[in-house]
Simulated assay, not measured.
Amino acid sequence: MNRLNWKKAGLRAAAFALGGALLLPGLTAHAAAANYTATDSDTFWKLSKKFNIPLNTLMAANPKVNPYNIYAGLKLTIPSGSVKVQAAQTVTTMKGESLAYKKVLQVKASAYSASVAENAWGPVDYFGKPLKLGTIAVDPKIIPLGSKVYITGYDFNGLPKGGMIATATDSGSAIKGNRIDIFIPGSRSYVSKFGMQNVKVYVLK
């Protein structure tokens, strides 16, 4: 066999040992994630497919392993794969601010005032703080108290146009499930004009 044919034969043998692919130079291993005990039928190629890891990365993580001699019982290092990071979900406010949120809810919204008739404990929220624009009452089982939210979809002159950031700092016996009550400064008769509206609530991160 001449030198050229010998070289081709060597490459074919290497490709067979690796399962049909050759290691490219200049690649380094990722941090090890786990150990693996090989079987007689394993090749680097098969393992790269099994663990969804690039062949070159797998081989670089096992530099002392002869790729032509993977046998049952051989201990191999399986490097960590790429971690897929899900892009944050965001909503854009009327001011152009991008807010990341955890979940979005379609809810029924009503409104309340600081009237004593609507607040047995006075014009304060659940935590005893004065009611103010941006205070909402929620069902804590749906929206945890203290949550920051962004509300859209309402239509009322007493609220910021297009959407508003609010904080869930109040609750009420009538606020159950997908319901919120929005505090609006003003008389009870004025606030009652809000009625019941369908709104979208983004629970912010």
Rank of each mutant, 00 (worst) to 15 (best):
A72W: 03
L27C: 07
P63G: 08
K141A: 13
G195S: 09
T135W: 03
Q106D: 15
D170N: 12
G128Q: 01
E97R: 13
Y126V: 04
G20W: 10
Y68T: 10
S41G: 06
I182F: 02
H30G: 12
A168Q: 05
Q86L: 14
S147H: 01
A31T: 14
A29N: 10
S113W: 02
G162W: 10
N198Y: 04
T37I: 14
F127W: 13
L145C: 02
P67W: 11
M59P: 02
P54H: 12
T28A: 14
A137Y: 04
L145V: 03
T43H: 08
P185W: 10
V199P: 03
N2Y: 00
L18H: 11
K108W: 07
P25W: 07
K50C: 05
R3Q: 11
K129H: 13
L27E: 12
K205Q: 14
V85Q: 14
V191A: 00
G146I: 11
V83R: 13
N178K: 15
T28W: 03
K64F: 13
Q86C: 01
A61Y: 08
K129N: 15
K46F: 11
Y71I: 12
P160T: 03
Q197F: 01
A166N: 01
L58Q: 12
P144D: 02
M59T: 03
G20I: 06
K200V: 09
K200F: 02
G26M: 06
F44E: 07
A29E: 12
W6F: 04
A61R: 02
K161S: 14
K200R: 15
Y101C: 04
L105V: 07
Y150Q: 03
A32D: 13
L99W: 11
T37M: 11
S48V: 08
F127T: 00
Y68H: 15
V116A: 14
R179K: 15
F156D: 11
G153P: 08
L74F: 04
K8M: 09
R3V: 07
L22N: 05
P67C: 10
A168S: 08
I53F: 06
N52G: 05
L159E: 05
S113A: 01
A32W: 10
D42P: 10
L47H: 10
F183S: 01
N5E: 13
D170E: 09
K108D: 12
L24R: 14
A61Q: 06
S171H: 08
V83C: 02
G20H: 06
G186W: 11
P123S: 08
I184W: 00
A72I: 02
W45R: 12
A38F: 11
A120P: 02
K50T: 14
P63Y: 05
R12P: 00
F16T: 13
K7T: 06
I70A: 07
V199M: 01
T90L: 09
S189T: 08
N119R: 09
S189K: 01
I70D: 06
T39G: 09
P79T: 11
T90I: 14
S110Y: 02
I70E: 07
K129F: 08
N178F: 12
S115I: 03
G81A: 14
S115F: 03
M196A: 00
I78S: 10
F183D: 00
M164W: 04
L133Y: 02
V203E: 06
A117H: 10
T90S: 12
V203L: 11
Y150G: 04
K193F: 01
S41V: 12
